[in-house]
Design a protein around this nucleic acid. Sequence first.
DNA 1: GTCTACATACTCGGATAATGGTTGTCCGAGTTTGGTCGG
DNA 2: CCGACCAAACTCGGACAACCATTATCCGAGTATGTAGAC
Lengths: 128, 128
Amino acid sequence: MKFTKATNYALHTMLMLVEASPIKPVGVQHLAESQGVSPTYLSKILTRLVKSGMIESVSGAYGGYRLSRKKDDITFLDIIHAIEGTASIFECDFVHGDECLIQALMQEAEAKMESHLKNTKLVDMIQK
Amino acid sequence: MKFTKATNYALHTMLMLVEASPIKPVGVQHLAESQGVSPTYLSKILTRLVKSGMIESVSGAYGGYRLSRKKDDITFLDIIHAIEGTASIFECDFVHGDECLIQALMQEAEAKMESHLKNTKLVDMIQK
DNA sequence: GTCTACATACTCGGATAATGGTTGTCCGAGTTTGGTCGG
DNA sequence: CCGACCAAACTCGGACAACCATTATCCGAGTATGTAGAC
């Protein structure tokens, strides 16, 4: 029960992108170096963020990644869901007649956490 | 980022133990059968619960597991922590000067979830 | 009747897989930029 | 000057490989209960 390192990479990268220019893209090498990851691996993570529409990639020389237009509306939950998937944190696969009370409770708890992550946006971090 | 199956087994087992007699222990075979797990594996999970003091084991014939005296004070968080450990859900191992803002936020979110799990006790489930 | 021994029904814990997800690496392919060189 | 070509700097995506936690299984050892048999 832990968030993956990939999520950590994604969150830190997104923070860097918010602070960077919204026009000139940032190369994966620079992003990877400052986090101590290999560029190839980080790019794999970033393509997941691209597919979810929060950043866009610019290929070719002087290319890289930059925020897509939605910019300031990106919440932490968005990023986490893009990396970890949106599946529920707890799943009871037993078949006890009606719904599983335990599962219901766990999902309530998860909702509490998610609502906190949904209410803080990326921008809230930098203008602190 | 998922709870392990072991946690699911532990939670369901604890529910069964709460509903059962607090004196006569329940054998691992019976507990395992109703969940479709192998008894040997379930017993490994249960020893973790024993070590954290919420249940106790009775060996020998007519042995098994039963709640320890603390009975009604057991919260869901207790069980989860016994199985998953108490380590934080998110850990940033980078070394950026002061504390990691992202990590701080994530731990706030985790606290929200944990407080919900701490406020519901096992007994709350059965007298529903 | 009582004591001993034994079979039985359990838990306990170590050793050892099988499985699957995370975390990478490697490389070939496509794309854009800038420079160079021939006309 | 201008256009074609080429090298360089990038991203993209598939195919691996290493590693580690989860999820088990197997088995030998300890422990309590109940029963049968000897005295």
